[in-house]
């Protein structure tokens, strides 16, 4: 194949692949984290550790570590950019918006920026859990204290 299938180009948008290759906010917060959560899709082998520093209700720092497919890692990278300076309530609202995008293709508000590039994933039901991993991990991190784990695999 000289060029990727059009259908694949829709799934793997250029901006998504850029985040996969050069993930933003990759690392740890070295003990400054107020919230930490681990997520995994054991079935396909995606792993994610998300750390947040929340001060007076606002996300001041965010970092993630993980390994997995392009979709899961790019989604995490793009999410961390969005999270900076958001309130916890805004972050949880964003999780809901993202889930709507995956479930029904509902367009995201403009402030989501690059994250819109994940819209193509909704057409690949098997990959929705890859894209959702970071967001479910975020939801878990914000709705619990200390360490939490989440899995977006339905079975096995």
């Amino acid at each position: 194949m000289a060029s990727p299938e059009p259908v694949l180009a829709e799934l793997y948008r250029e901006i998504l692949l850029d985040h996969y290759r050069s993930p933003r906010n990759r690392g740890t917060l070295d003990g400054r984290a107020t919230h930490r959560s681990e997520g995994a899709n054991p079935l396909c082998g995606d792993e994610l550790v998300l750390e947040l520093a929340v001060e007076t209700g606002r996300v001041t720092e965010v970092a993630f570590l993980g390994r997995g497919c392009a979709i899961s890692q790019a989604s995490a990278s793009m999410m961390t950019i969005y999270l900076r300076d958001r309130t916890a309530a805004e972050a949880l609202e964003a999780v809901w918006c993202f889930q709507q995008l995956m479930l029904s293709g509902t367009a995201l508000p403009e402030e989501f920026g690059d994250i819109e590039a994940l819209a193509g994933v909704a057409k690949f039901p098997v990959r929705v859990k890859c894209a959702s991993l970071a967001w479910k991990t975020l939801e878990q991190a914000l709705s619990s204290d200390g360490v939490a784990t989440v899995s977006t695999d339905e079975g096995s």
Binding site: L8, Y12, L43, C44, G45, A70, I71
Partner: peptide
């Protein structure tokens, strides 16, 4: 290239392979 992404690209070309832990996580 993560196995899941490889599987996706191959599926686009009609090729069916398995990507994952193959129900043998201790091996992985």
């Amino acid at each position: 290239v993560h196995p899941h992404d490889l599987g996706q690209v191959l599926d686009g070309e009609g090729i069916a392979i398995r990507a994952g832990h193959h129900c043998a996580q201790p091996v992985m």
